[in-house]
Design a protein around this nucleic acid. Structure first.
Length: 598
RNA sequence: CGGGAUGUAGCGCAGUUUGGUAGCGCGUUUGACUGGGGGUCAAAAGGUCGCAGGUUCAAAUCCUGUCAUCCCGACCA
């Protein structure tokens, strides 16, 4: 790259480029395909960034690929600076690699599976924990090799039940995944130090990409592990809900968000007799509540779960009718993993599924966990423990006093907007939507134990290797950027990941000197490290302006014979309203450079 | 995986109810006039109507099957 003050902003490591519109492929369209709903999907298609190949499978055309390369380049710089090394693992992997971790079963249909000509079971990698752990089994031999942090940028495959929204949820997508290896948690070589470095690297990456994002605490999910954060692009169309405390700055995924202190009172005096009601054929809690003359918040929802132990115990989780039970929180309250009970087994044990009430506590040996909000009412509506019947008037102190001794009261539901903040007295949580573009985990020894990855430490003691893993959805990052940065006319790309920094539009390019002038200007810009797209098509100005708005290049220069004669060009940023402004030809290069470098 | 819908030219759609020559707009090609926010005129190219079977003298249209795509939900490092 040329020596320049803009070089740090030009994220391409090689020399800046000048490309002609007429010699690349940018198939813009006036209409979006009827199946595109989300703005990023509509505009990426209309602007000629992507074209569909099949459900959840896309061609990345030159504009998209240039952007993706720029995102990848930023990722490489930041991860290399954080001490990680790039490598590449295969997309194909033998299914037997999953023998130790059983994750092929956890993934289920999400895993693309195929058989090769010899009948060997093979999978297209949805992620690479098993491959890299297996690799390490044969290559990590001494405690002296730690810590180690390896990453790759690669195509991943997931057979999504329902791919949708263009690049936001694909079956084939580009992902950066990194894996770190340690012998201890603390200290310079420990997992925690690398985790913190990666947290910082992710913050740097998404900041450099020009994204409005929030790091939030997250559940580790089926990948397992002990701590995790998600990086969410803030966007009203996002699939994920996050909860934030405006006072303390606490932010967490809805799956993880804690709820601050809530009072509960067992002694509320009853206000009504227990009455049984016939409620046939009412599937939703909403319908039942209406029929009983109350609302969902006046009902108790009682879920039958089981511990995942060798001899499973029954677990009854009780929340207010308008709340959602959070399995992970139930797990923490009970002290062991739980899952929804098998319906058949639960019925055989005597649960009237769909009509279960807390009164079952007296009838069977079980663990009962109650959310504080499910206690305070004087009179609850709930199931009658027989098919097609509910009761009203249930009161904890009168009707089930034993719950006060036998049941566990704990936060076991998903947080919602308006709940008390767990980090600031008196503050309430707010709900926001986001798109997950990054996720970092402390895996611990889950994979090393399952696959036998251990080394001898300094004291010649065998130790399981401690792991972390760190993902970034590269193609999703591009889509989420557009999702949160566009207007009615098209995409507005941040300079750092735009396919080009500058677009030069020629007016009447077949007139003498116009094209020559445009290209010599383009060369000067490239000298300064800026990537330039020259719209050299012999089109009328209207369509060229419309196309420029669509593809969203940050800076626009308009070259016409009229302006050239006056020693001028026109200049406009993609974010500027209205017409371009005439500026001196001699100033335009510096102007572009300083805007890109800002 | 449940519920709903749709497959007709590159894109957006009409035609299907009531079987009878394959249509419209945009885009594309050629020529002319044009030239600052998706131009005008003239000419042209482009479709085995998703696929397979059936009914019929005759099927885009009716029947059966199948495949594909999308939407809502369930699911989701």
């Amino acid at each position: 790259m040329s020596t320049t003050h803009a070089s740090n902003a030009s994220s391409s490591s090689s020399k800046a480029v000048v490309h002609r519109w007429s010699q690349t492929l940018i198939p813009t369209t006036r209409d979006a395909p009827s199946d595109a709903q989300m703005p990023s999907h509509i505009f990426m298609t209309r602007a000629g960034y992507i074209r569909p190949v099949g459900a959840g499978i896309y061609n990345y055309l030159p504009l998209a690929w240039r952007s993706l390369q720029k995102i990848s380049h930023i990722i490489r710089e930041e991860l290399d600076a954080a001490g990680a090394s790039e490598m590449l693992m295969p997309a194909l992997m033998p299914t037997e690699l999953y023998a130790g971790t059983k994750r092929d079963q956890d993934y289920g249909d999400l895993l693309f599976q195929l058989e090769d000509r010899h009948g060997r079971k093979t999978a297209l990698g949805p992620t690479h924990e098993e491959v890299i752990t297996d690799l390490m089994c044969g290559s990590l031999t001494s405690y002296k090799q730690f810590p180690l942090n390896l990453y790759q940028i690669q195509t991943k495959f997931r057979d999504e039940a329902r791919p949708r929204a263009g690049l936001l949820r694909c079956r084939e997508f580009i992902m950066k995944d990194a894996y770190s290896f340690h012998l201890e948690l603390d200290g310079d070589a420990g997992l925690n130090a690398t985790y913190d470095k990666m947290y910082q690297a992710y913050t740097n990456i998404f900041t450099r990409c020009g994204l409005d994002f929030s790091p939030v605490e997250a559940e580790a999910g089926p990948i397992g592990g002990s701590a995790s954060h998600e990086f969410m692009v803030n966007c009203v169309n996002g699939e994920d809900t996050i909860l934030v405390c405006p006072v303390s700055g606490y932010a967490a995924n809805v799956e993880k968000a804690e709820i601050g202190n809530r009072n509960h009172d067992w002694t509320t005096a009853p206000t009504a007799e227990v009455t049984k009601h016939h409620t046939p054929g009412m599937p939703g809690i909403q319908l039942v509540a209406e029929h009983l003359g109350t609302d969902a918040a006046g009902m108790l929802k009682t879920l039958v779960m089981q511990t995942q132990e060798d001899t499973p115990r029954w677990v009854l989780a009780v929340v207010r009718g308008d709340h959602e039970v959070n399995e992970a929180k139930v797990r923490d309250a009970v002290g062991t993993a739980v899952q929804m009970a098998d319906e058949k087994a639960a019925k055989e044990a005597g649960f009237a599924i769909g009509y279960v009430s807390p009164n079952m506590l007296e009838k069977l040996d079980m663990v009962m966990v109650i959310d504080p909000d499910a206690i305070n009412n004087a009179s609850w509506a709930t199931g009658a423990d027989e098919s097609d019947h509910h009761i009203t008037g249930f009161n904890w102190s009168r009707d089930l006093p034993s719950a006060q001794d036998k049941a566990i009261v704990a936060d076991i539901r998903n947080a919602a907007a308006g709940d008390p903040s767990p980090r600031a007295e008196g503050a309430t949580l707010e709900a926001k939507r986001g798109i997950e573009v990054g996720h970092i985990f402390k895996l611990g020894t889950k994979y090393s134990e399952a696959m036998g990855l251990s080394v001898l430490d300094q004291n010649q003691k065998k130790q399981d290797v401690i792991m972390g893993c760190y993902g970034i959805g590269v193609s999703r990052t591009l889509a989420s950027c557009i999702e949160s940065s566009h207007d009615d006319n098209g995409i507005i790309m941040p300079a750092a990941i735009a396919p080009y920094h500058v677009q030069i539009i020629t007016i009447k390019p077949n007139e003498d000197g116009v094209l020559d002038h445009a290209f010599s200007l383009a060369d000067e810009l490239a000298e300064q490290g800026l990537d330039v797209l020259v719209d050299d098509r012999n089109e009328r100005p209207g369509p060229k302006f419309k196309d420029a708005d669509l593809i969203g290049i940050p800076l626009r220069i308009i070259v016409s014979s009229k302006a050239i004669e006056a020693g001028q060009v026109e200049f406009k940023q993609r974010t500027d309203e209205g017409k371009a402004q005439l500026i001196n030809r001699s100033d335009v290069v510096d102007r572009c450079v300083s805007l890109i470098a800002h």
